[in-house]
Amino acid sequence: MADTEVRKIIHVDMDAFFASVEQRDDPSLRGRPVAVGYAAARGVVAAASYEARKFGVRSALPSVTAMRRCPDLVFVPPRFDVYQEVSRRIHEVFALYTDLIQPLSLDEAYLDVTANRRGIETAWRTAKQIRAAILEETGLTASAGISYNKFLAKLASDHRKPNGQFAVTPDMGPAWIEVLPVSRFHGVGPVTADKMKRLGIATGADLRAKSFEFLQQHFGSSAGWYYAISRGQDDRPVNPDRVRKSSGSETTFDHDLTDPAEIEAGVLRMAEDVWNWCESRRSFGRTVTVKIKYGDFRQITRSRSQTGAVTTRDALRQSALDLVRSVFPVAKGIRLVGVTVSNFTDAPATGEVELPMFREGQAA
């Protein structure tokens, strides 16, 4: 990884971030299975500690299922303000090593350290120093993947979790890809993985064996991506100026709602969250969208675009209310509502992340 002609990309991923913050701040939680979220009928696990993961508890798992799998599971309400502050300190560490930082979320980011600002011998040693500095600054562990492109670096960061790192060098990249299941590949979701399985594609080697024409026939515009990654190729740069396209927040209710006043109250709470983000970043959009999910999981959206940006709290609240009122009266209960602002007229601040998704029982 010392070849200066080869890009040096590090993908840093914090270990069980939300849950680890809670265990750090409350010593009684250390060594115990912890879920960040709410133990309500409609609760959803936002994050799980490694102790909880041993029981099959994962993020996005319904709380009821999580408690069934792990009766000793401890639920802790999320503290997004704390997570955001810790994330800010982590990014300050990143900035000591490179200006090319592309955040993916509060707890992970790509770093391009090709320029080697600190004069460290290799990207491997750079990653070790970054992880040590994060531990010193926050008391939390991170894992890292090091490679010559973003796709491989992200795969590598998961290879030695938790609190480890792994490097995929140029001479090992294509061969390393061959033995991995395609379900682990970034850009191959569960539905696509199932489709690939039906087509006889289970590993990177299977994917590489398919012609571009075959991939195009079955996967359309994604064919080029699959063709490239099966060969360990990814030319995407680490882009610190990635423009946010939207900002949104949503909530799942404790029970399905039919009362318009209760539904509107939920929409207003989400509008308030979105407005706080927009105001703090001085980033305002022209399009407001309200998302509605019914009790049977059918989902619809209602949107409204204006000629100018929504620049006041009252305007955003009114737009959101008008949109949700367009579905009244409701014939069936609503389990979730969300509000999103998009089509920004002023580019959002670099590297900001999505507002957190609020779950049932959480105060706005």
Rank of each mutant, 00 (worst) to 15 (best):
K8Y: 02
F166I: 04
F328I: 13
V353E: 10
F284V: 09
P348I: 01
Q362A: 05
E136R: 13
P240V: 14
D314R: 15
T345R: 12
R30M: 08
T258C: 07
T345P: 10
T98N: 00
E92Y: 11
S222T: 02
L155M: 13
A320D: 02
I130T: 03
S326I: 12
R118P: 06
V339S: 07
A123S: 13
G119C: 13
P260C: 10
A47P: 07
S247H: 13
K291C: 08
L155N: 02
G266T: 09
H159F: 13
V337W: 11
A167R: 12
S280Q: 11
R335L: 08
V36I: 15
R68Q: 12
A2T: 10
P190Q: 15
T311L: 15
I120A: 05
P174M: 10
A132M: 05
K154M: 07
M67C: 09
D254F: 09
A40D: 15
I229R: 04
T126N: 11
V76H: 01
E262G: 07
G338H: 05
F18R: 01
S342F: 02
V21K: 08
A142E: 04
P170Q: 07
T251W: 03
R68I: 10
R335D: 00
Y97N: 01
Y226W: 06
L111C: 09
V310L: 14
S221T: 15
K197P: 01
R7F: 04
F80C: 01
A153S: 12
A193C: 06
D99L: 13
R269M: 10
P240E: 14
G232D: 07
A363V: 13
R88N: 09
V113F: 03
P162K: 03
S49M: 10
S249Q: 07
L321D: 08
G189F: 01
I177L: 06
A205W: 01
C278Y: 06
A66P: 04
L29R: 10
V86S: 02
R335K: 15
R42M: 03
E360D: 13
D15Q: 11
Y148D: 06
V330W: 02
H186C: 00
T4Y: 12
D314V: 13
A142K: 00
E108N: 11
K210R: 15
D235H: 12
R30V: 10
V12H: 09
S147G: 07
E178W: 00
P27L: 12
L207H: 08
W124C: 02
E136P: 00
S319K: 14
M357T: 14
A265G: 09
Q216R: 15
H255D: 14
A47D: 09
